[in-house]
Design a protein around this nucleic acid. Structure first.
Lengths: 170, 170
DNA sequence: TTTATAATGGTTAAAGAAAGTCAAAGGAGG
DNA sequence: CCTCCTTTGACTTTCTTTAACCATTATAAA
């Protein structure tokens, strides 16, 4: 029962598979007109299928020369990282749970000591400094993003393109 | 999807890199006709890309023999970090300002590319995922903490301490 | 010396070119 | 029929490009 969203999803996945590095740049309107659908359909597909939990990072830029960039992470790299991403981080996370996870990542060699030092200091209640219910949500979001970056690893740094790495960073 | 402004930016950057001293003199009209665009396009590029925040100084002079001079400031290693910590981060910070600061830290050699990649992804609106007023406060807190860790970890790559890193983790 | 003119660069508002958000309508399965 | 997932369309936000008009400086003419 392949429905439109599924088609768009597999189309993007196949584009990714054709790449040497798992990174693609697409244009929302172009894609939408290729599939004859509303442009916002693309956003729907991105937000339901190309999520961090499923191992994707999506960045974009508006205005003239705008684009959408999708990066696929290397999911079978490390099982604890993978677990974290896929199920270990929910909507909210306590400081203790976050630190425990980071310690485990460090001890299993998934992250360096510098990474541990930085990340663990970022997810403390003290650093976040916002009221309780929100704090835990932000922390979960941070942890998820950290896990994604660690999974993506050093080599395939998303912008392995040209030399003007920061030309259009935002 | 590099667009006109991006091309002009990287052209100017490459001119700068060719120089022994990081200073170039260009003429607005000449540049504009080289890129076949409106002269004011040059001003747009200058004001969006060659800003003080990004470490550039732009001076100019009108009339016959007029010119535009672009100087890349000498980014000495930790002074920007100190500035950030002491005054550069207020109660709130936008995504743009945070990314710009991180780029500058990277370019001045204060942080590694991995650190840049991780941190810049953590301070995005998308990652934080909370409503507007709070977002900017959390971001400021994160940036301050990052700056503190980087300054402490300083030149000799941080690991000068012992093995009791995890003694009082929680 | 004063004045006009040509040669520069600056500013700003409007149009153009993407992408994002959100709520409402549509459908398919239980 | 109820719920959840999908699809659409109207509206918003962000970034870029252009064009018309403004300001300054050097130089040649008076």
């Amino acid at each position: 029962m392949a429905v439109l969203s599924d088609n768009i999803e597999s189309f993007l996945i196949s584009l990714l598979q054709e790449e040497e590095n798992p990174v693609i740049l697409v244009q929302r309107n172009e894609l939408a007109s290729y599939f004859r659908c509303a442009p916002s359909q693309i956003n729907y597909v991105l937000s339901t299928r190309f999520t961090l939990e499923r191992g994707y990072t999506v960045e974009s830029r508006r205005g003239g020369g705008g684009y959408i960039r999708i990066v696929k992470m290397d999911l079978d790299k490390n099982s604890y990282l993978r677990y974290l991403l896929e199920e270990g981080i929910g909507d909210a996370m306590s400081q203790d749970d976050a630190i425990t996870a980071l310690v485990r990542l460090y001890e299993s060699g998934s992250i360096s000591q510098e990474q541990y030092t930085l990340c663990s200091s970022l997810v403390t209640d003290k650093t976040l400094g916002v009221p309780a219910p929100i704090k835990d949500r932000v922390r979960a979001n941070l942890m998820r993003q950290m896990a994604a970056v660690f999974l993506r690893g050093g080599s395939t740094t998303a912008n392995a393109n040209t030399n003007d790495t920061f030309a259009n960073k935002k």
